[in-house]
């Protein structure tokens, strides 16, 4: 792991263990290099260097305030007006963290689902279709088809197929969150970022959501922030452990949970702090 000099001075004593994914079948789709995030003068993320494997689920874990959500939101530049992000975010050979990038186009490739379900105050159908219409898909049949496949992929189709014109605000929390996933995948992204998507859901909805994600990784590369250790263990291939704005350990999920190399990681995953 390469550390720039000024960082090294501060982190000499810091115990870290970073193993980037190296799986020929799942090449790197997104990587960050020398990423720093500042809120005003306060540094929230210092030097996060991670590579994310395609068509896999990567979990970001760590105590509250460790910077995992900030890190995730930087990946599709949702922090643009809130924080200053320096460093490179490489996506298909292009640094998407530079001003010349069309950030709106980029976000269609790197979709995001948030902590609290946020369906729009529109019908279920329009929640999915209206962003497509804005980008020129106006053919009714084509829209119908995308709405149907997205809802099916998000495992919501069977419950709502007769109510597509009803308000999305009437859906339950779990359904609303799956609608948000359907909405995100309808614009055909490569990467799906999820920020604690199950934290507002009951256990049944959570487990349905996890099944959905396991299905989705065939077509999408997924990065998920979670507070739930079991969840990370159940669904992810790789896990990054964040603490105080740094990635302290990154490895396959099984290594992180069964044989963590860093003491703090070990304490955290075994529930001794955080």
């Amino acid at each position: 792991m390469f550390l720039s000099n000024d960082v090294q001075e501060n982190t000499e004593m810091l115990e870290r263990h970073i193993v980037q994914p190296a799986d020929a079948e799942h090449p790197t789709i997104l990587s960050t290099e020398d990423l720093h995030v500042y809120y005003g003068k306060k540094e929230a993320i210092s030097e996060g260097d991670l590579r994310f494997a395609s068509n896999q689920i990567t979990a970001l874990i760590g105590p509250s305030g460790s910077g995992k959500s900030t890190f995730l939101r930087s990946l599709n530049r949702m922090n643009d007006r809130i924080a200053t992000v320096t460093g490179r975010i490489m996506y298909r050979g292009v640094d998407i963290n530079q001003p010349s990038i069309d950030v709106y186009e980029m976000r269609r490739r790197v979709g995001m689902v948030f902590q609290r379900p946020n369906p729009f105050a529109k019908s279920i159908y329009d929640n999915i279709a209206f962003a497509l219409r804005l980008r020129g898909t106006t053919d009714k049949h084509e829209l119908d088809e995308i709405v149907e496949t997205s809802l099916k992929q998000a495992a919501l189709w069977n419950q709502v197929k007769d109510d597509l014109n009803k308000s999305a605000l009437a859906l339950s929390g779990g359904q609303a969150q799956r609608l948000c996933i359907a909405r995100a995948i309808a614009v055909k992204p490569d990467i799906l970022l999820l920020d604690e998507p199950a934290s507002a859901l009951d256990p049944v909805s959570t487990s349905q959501l996890e099944d959905t994600l396991l299905e989705l990784k065939q077509n999408y590369s997924i990065i998920i922030v979670t507070h739930n250790m079991q969840q990370a263990g159940r669904i992810s291939e790789y896990t990054a452990f964040f603490n105080q704005g740094r990635v302290l350990e990154y490895d396959t999920t099984s290594h992180i949970f069964t044989n963590p190399q860093v003491q703090i990681t070990s304490d955290y995953v075994s529930g001794n702090f955080g």
Binding site: N76, M78, R107, G111, F114, N118, A121, L134, R183, V187
Partner: peptide, 17 residues
Amino acid sequence: DTTQREGGLALGLSRWE
């Protein structure tokens, strides 16, 4: 809610859209 604005932006809509 702010989450509505984030939802729009995350779909690749501009601020104006």
